[in-house]
Simulated scan of single mutants.
Amino acid sequence: MTDFDQFENEEDIPKSKTQIKREVEALQDLGKTLLGLSKNQLKKVTMSDTLREAFAEADRIKQREAMRRHLQYIGKIMRTEDHETISQQVALFDTTSAAYNKLFHQLEHKRDALIGENSKEELSKYLDEHPNLEEIQLLRQLIRQSQKEVENGNKSNTNRKKLFKLIREIEETKLGLRG
Rank of each mutant, 00 (worst) to 15 (best):
K15D: 07
K15L: 12
K15Y: 09
S16G: 07
T18L: 12
R22Q: 13
E23M: 08
E23S: 07
V24M: 15
E25C: 15
E25T: 14
E25V: 13
A26L: 06
A26I: 05
L27F: 04
D29Y: 12
L30Y: 05
K32S: 09
G36I: 04
G36P: 04
G36T: 04
S38C: 03
N40V: 09
L42G: 01
L42T: 04
L42Q: 05
K43I: 06
K43F: 08
K43A: 10
K44H: 11
V45I: 10
M47A: 01
M47K: 01
M47T: 00
M47P: 00
M47Q: 01
D49G: 06
T50N: 09
T50K: 05
E53D: 13
E53M: 08
A54C: 06
A54P: 01
F55Q: 01
A56V: 00
A58V: 07
D59H: 15
D59V: 14
D59R: 14
D59C: 14
I61K: 03
I61P: 02
K62G: 10
K62F: 14
Q63E: 14
R64A: 14
R64K: 14
R64L: 10
R64Y: 12
E65A: 15
E65T: 13
M67C: 15
M67E: 08
R68S: 13
R68D: 13
R68Q: 15
R69T: 10
R69N: 12
R69V: 08
R69E: 07
L71C: 08
Q72I: 12
Q72P: 08
Q72Y: 14
I74T: 02
I74S: 01
I74V: 08
G75I: 02
I77N: 03
M78H: 04
D82P: 05
E84L: 11
T85I: 15
I86E: 00
V90Y: 00
A91I: 03
L92C: 06
F93T: 00
D94E: 12
T95P: 07
S97L: 05
A99D: 10
N101I: 10
L103V: 05
H105M: 09
Q106Y: 07
L107V: 05
L107K: 03
E108I: 02
E108C: 01
H109Y: 09
D112P: 03
A113N: 13
L114C: 04
L114Y: 02
I115S: 00
N118G: 09
S119N: 15
S119M: 09
K120M: 15
E122S: 10
E122D: 11
L123I: 05
S124T: 06
Y126E: 00
E129H: 11
H130C: 03
P131T: 02
P131V: 02
P131M: 04
N132E: 15
N132R: 12
E134D: 11
I136C: 10
I136T: 15
I136M: 13
Q137F: 10
L139A: 04
L139G: 01
R140C: 06
